[in-house]
């Protein structure tokens, strides 16, 4: 997701100025993606340049923006298009573990265990938040984080079981790696 589409979705509710957009974005994402006001205004400028939003006359020193028909089309396209796995950030835990296995002197089981404890704590913390009242959009964001943490824990269990059967192959030394010409 880009900030651009987030702001377009919020402006579909009605005209808003920068600070209102920042607060609404924070509320919609449950504070999981904090935006600074600079990001909001930079994005609004780009959206205005691309005719996706239009600035309205100033009101008490604040300039509200409204979504344009072009912005509405862009928003519909966004909602209709699935998010591709490749668009998401790389999984640092997976990369760290892959490197741990091939790095001499690293206790890989310990790396798995340390990560599992941390992820379990995170999952416990998210679950505690579920006991507090919240609106459905926030609860769904929370559920998404809970399911992601659960998936990571299942994957870590799988890694641990796989490590027990793992017999390492010799890792090529840096000097043996062929450099593409």
């Amino acid at each position: 997701m880009s900030v651009k589409h987030g702001l377009l979705a919020l402006l579909e509710r009605g005209p808003m100025y920068g600070y209102q957009l920042r607060v609404a974005f924070d509320s919609a994402t449950g504070g999981t993606w904090p935006l600074n006001i600079g990001q909001v205004y930079t994005t609004l400028s780009r959206l205005e340049r691309d005719d996706l939003v239009a600035a309205l006359p100033e009101n008490e020193g604040q300039r509200p923006y409204e979504i344009t028909p072009g912005g509405r089309d862009e928003l519909r396209k966004w909602f209709a298009t699935p998010v591709q796995r490749g668009d998401r950030p790389r999984d640092e835990v997976a990369i760290k573990l892959a490197l741990a296995i091939t790095t001499p002197g690293v206790d890989v089981a310990k790396v798995v265990m340390t990560q599992r404890t941390a992820t379990m704590r995170t999952l416990q913390e998210y679950t505690r938040l579920k006991t507090q009242p919240g609106d459905l959009p926030w609860l769904l964001v929370l559920d998404a984080m809970i399911f992601q943490a659960e998936a990571e824990l299942r994957w870590l269990d799988h890694c641990e079981a796989s490590l027990l059967r793992y017999e390492p192959r010799p890792v090529p030394a840096a000097t043996d790696v062929e450099v593409p010409r």
Binding site: S27, G31, T122, Q124, E125, Y126, R128, G134
Partner: peptide, 11 residues
């Protein structure tokens, strides 16, 4: 789960 800091706050 007895950590002092909260990871997230409820909006």
């Amino acid at each position: 789960r007895d950590q002092p800091e909260e990871l997230l706050s409820t909006p």
